[in-house]
């Protein structure tokens, strides 16, 4: 496969999801109902990325003690909830992942 053709195609595909809507909707006004819906975009998209990553790390449901992403994820949720500090959540979340993997290896 031609690597450069692939990268060009991916660049165009990505740009097409970003630029046109920005230009179009900066000229048009949307009804308020659309904004009520768009308010839920971040929470919905982030959840749709997070849940499979922690519950289905290998593509299948893994409610096991040696599923480190699940337990590190739960610890990160707790830290984020109590501290509301993003940096702390990232650092302790990664520390939790490595600690959990050391205690409960695959």
């Amino acid at each position: 496969m031609n690597e450069w053709l692939l990268i060009s195609g991916m660049a165009l595909a990505t740009f097409a999801t970003r630029y046109p809507v920005l230009v179009w909707l900066s000229r048009t006004s949307l009804p308020p109902s659309v904004f009520r819906a768009l308010k839920f975009v971040p929470a919905s998209v982030l959840s749709a990325i997070i849940f499979p990553a922690v519950f289905l790390p290998g593509g299948e449901l893994a409610l096991r003690l040696n599923n480190a992403p699940l337990f590190a994820g739960l610890i990160a949720v707790f830290i984020a909830w109590r501290s509301r500090n993003l940096l702390l959540t990232i650092l302790l979340g990664m520390a939790a992942l490595w600690t959990w993997r050391a205690i409960f290896p695959l």
Partner: peptide, 19 residues
Amino acid sequence: WGLDFALVVTFIGILVPEI
């Protein structure tokens, strides 16, 4: 090393306070 998990904890850190 599981470095890709950093993205997940970042998103958790963003999401939780928004709820």
